[in-house]
Simulated assay, not measured.
Amino acid sequence: MEIVILEEAAELGRLAADAIVALLQHRPGAVLGLATGSSPLPVYDELVRRHEAGEVSFAQARAFTLDEYVGLPPGHPEGYRTVIEREFASRVDLPANALHTPDGAAQDIPAACAAYDAAIAAAGGIDLQILGIGTDGHIAFNEPGSSFASRTRIKTLMHQTRVDNARFFDDDLDAVPVHCLTQGLGTIMEARHVVLLATGEGKAEAVQHLVEGPVSAMWPATILQHHPHATILLDEAAAGRLTLAPYFRQSWETKPAWQGL
C-alpha cells in the first residue's frame, strides 16, 4: 500500500488522472472502475480537461461502476448511473454501451448481481478501480461488518451512510434509499490497481484505520492492506491522524521516478 499526502484535492485528482492516462496509452481498451461521491470529482474533471486537450481517448475503454441505489426510478438525478454519466461519461468519448452499472431496478436482484460480477469477469477484470471511503470506513457500499469474501449483492445502508448522503437529496433523509446494490469486497480486491482518494478532516479517522489499524470487518477498507497494488491519495486534513505521516511524505518525495504510481 502506497500512501501519498498532498496539499489539495486538485493535486490528488491530477495524480490519479496521470495513472489512468498512462494506462489508456498502454492499453486503449482498458477496463476502468468508476466511483461516485465527491472524492473522485477532481479526477473526472482532470480527465475531461485532458480529453478536451486531445491527450487521452476513452473510445475503446470500458467502465464498471461500484454501486447503485435500489428503488430509485430510472434517470433519477441521484441514481449513480445518472451521476456518473453527468460527471464523467457524457463529457468524454466513452461509448454509451461501454458503461456498465448494477441494475437497481431488477426484478431478480440476486440474478442481476451475479450477472454483474460475470460481466466484469468477461471483460477481463478491472484494470484500475477508483474508490472513495466513507466516514465509517466503507468502500463502495460495503458497510461495517461486510464479509471480505463478498461479491456484488444487495446491502442495507447504515443510518450514518444515509445521513452522509442526504446532502444529495436536499437534506431529506427519508428520500435516501435504504438499500443498494454494491460490488463486494471480494470483487473490488480483484481489480489489478486500486486508487483510493480521501479528502477532509471528516475522513481522518477512517483513513487512520485504513492505513495504520488492524484489518477488521468493522472498518471494511482495511482489507486494502492486503491488496498487491493499492494507492491511497490523501490531502493534509484526511492524513491528519496518521502517526507515520512524516515517513509517508518522505517516501513520496524520494520515490524513484521510474516507479510510477
Rank of each mutant, 00 (worst) to 15 (best):
Y116N: 04
E46D: 12
L15R: 15
L32G: 09
L128F: 07
A63Y: 15
G71Q: 03
Q107G: 13
D108M: 13
A119Y: 03
H51L: 04
D103Y: 09
L128P: 01
P110I: 04
P40A: 09
S38V: 09
Q25K: 14
Y69P: 06
R62F: 07
A119P: 00
H100F: 15
A35E: 11
A112T: 02
L24C: 03
E143H: 07
A121Y: 10
V70N: 02
V48R: 13
S39F: 08
E55F: 10
L15M: 13
G145P: 01
C113T: 05
S38K: 15
G124Y: 12
G54Q: 02
G37Y: 11
G37S: 08
E68D: 15
A16F: 04
V48Q: 06
A123H: 08
A122I: 03
D18Q: 14
A89P: 05
S147D: 13
Q60D: 15
A122R: 11
A61D: 07
N142T: 14
R50C: 14
A105R: 14
A112M: 04
T101A: 15
D127T: 09
V48G: 02
E78Q: 15
E78L: 14
D108G: 01
E143A: 04
I130D: 03
P102V: 11
T135N: 11
H138V: 10
R153H: 14
A115G: 15
L72D: 09
R86G: 12
S146W: 02
V21L: 06
R50I: 07
I130P: 00
T65N: 15
L99V: 12
S150M: 01
E143G: 09
A121P: 00
R153L: 01
L15C: 00
F148V: 07
A19N: 09
P102G: 08
G125D: 03
H100M: 11
Y69T: 04
H51S: 10
E78H: 13
Y116A: 05
L32F: 05
A59L: 15
D93K: 00
A121K: 12
Q129A: 08
G37K: 12
R81G: 07
P73Y: 11
D117A: 09
A123P: 00
A105K: 04
A89N: 03
R50H: 11
E85D: 06
G79P: 01
G54R: 04
L23T: 12
G145H: 05
D136E: 14
P95C: 12
L41K: 09
A149P: 00
D108W: 10
T135F: 04
A59Q: 12
T36H: 06
P74D: 06
R91H: 09
D108K: 08
P74N: 08
G104Y: 13
L128T: 05
D127N: 11
D93E: 07
R81T: 08
A98Q: 14
P77H: 07
R27D: 12
A106G: 08
F141R: 01
D127W: 06
Y116T: 13
C113E: 02
A119D: 14
R50N: 13
V92K: 05
G104A: 05
D103V: 10
Q60G: 15
A118H: 05
I109P: 12
P144N: 12
